[in-house]
Structure formats: structure tokens, C-alpha cells
């Protein structure tokens, strides 16, 4: 058995867990946490597949792409969080019941 297979399988499972969370959770912060789990699952899968085929360490190109991906993910996370915080402040100014749960009124995951 190649040493990186556990990590590849782990990445696959993480993608599943994360995607479930992104789609099933109501709370925006929870979705964002799940989004980050999915992202790192994708990256782990990427890195371990590269290590799997070279029989050793993760290649330089996948590593560079993963670092790029991590930075892009944190940029998106930061922006969504800024929006969520601001939306909550709107609620404090003029509270609207249930308005904070991103998808309560719009059914955006179950078509």
C-alpha cells in the first residue's frame, strides 16, 4: 500500500463532509466553516494524488496551486464574513425575525 493513499481517501471523505455542510447548514458561519473543510479536502486529495503518482512527496506544481487555492479561499472567507457581520449590524439597527439565516425564506439548496 502506498503511503499517501490514506490521505487521498481522507481528502475524499472531507470533501463529502464539507459539501454536506455547505448545503445542509442554515447558519452562514457554519456554511463557511464547511466551505473551508471542503476546500482543504480538495487540496489534500490533490496533494496526495500527486504524491501517490510520484511515489514520494507532493510535486512542486500541485504545492504551488494549493498555496494559491488556500490564499484565494481565505480571501473569499474574509469577504463573506465582512458581509455577514454587516448584515447582522443592519439587523441590530432594524431587527427582522429570521433574517439572519441565509436561506430561511429562499430555498436555495433543494430545488
Amino acid at each position: 500500500m502506498n503511503g499517501s493513499i490514506p490521505f487521498a481517501l481522507c481528502g475524499a471523505v472531507l470533501v463529502g463532509i464539507g459539501l454536506y455542510g455547505v448545503m445542509a447548514h442554515d447558519h452562514l458561519l457554519r456554511r463557511l466553516i464547511a466551505f473551508n473543510v471542503t476546500g482543504s479536502g480538495v487540496f489534500l486529495l490533490f496533494g496526495s494524488l500527486s504524491a501517490l503518482s510520484s511515489g514520494g512527496a507532493t510535486g512542486a506544481v500541485p504545492q504551488a496551486l494549493i498555496i494559491t487555492g488556500i490564499v484565494v479561499a481565505v480571501a473569499s472567507t474574509a469577504f463573506v464574513l465582512a458581509l455577514v457581520v454587516r448584515l447582522k449590524e443592519e439587523d441590530v439597527d432594524a431587527p427582522a425575525p429570521g433574517a439572519f439565516e441565509g436561506s430561511s425564506e429562499h430555498d436555495d439548496h433543494a430545488p
Partner: peptide, 10 residues
Amino acid sequence: FEAAIRYLMF
């Protein structure tokens, strides 16, 4: 803000 968050989530 709601529309932007929704857009980003998708």
C-alpha cells in the same frame, strides 16, 4: 447585502 451573500454562497 443579502443578495451578495446569496450570490457568494452559490
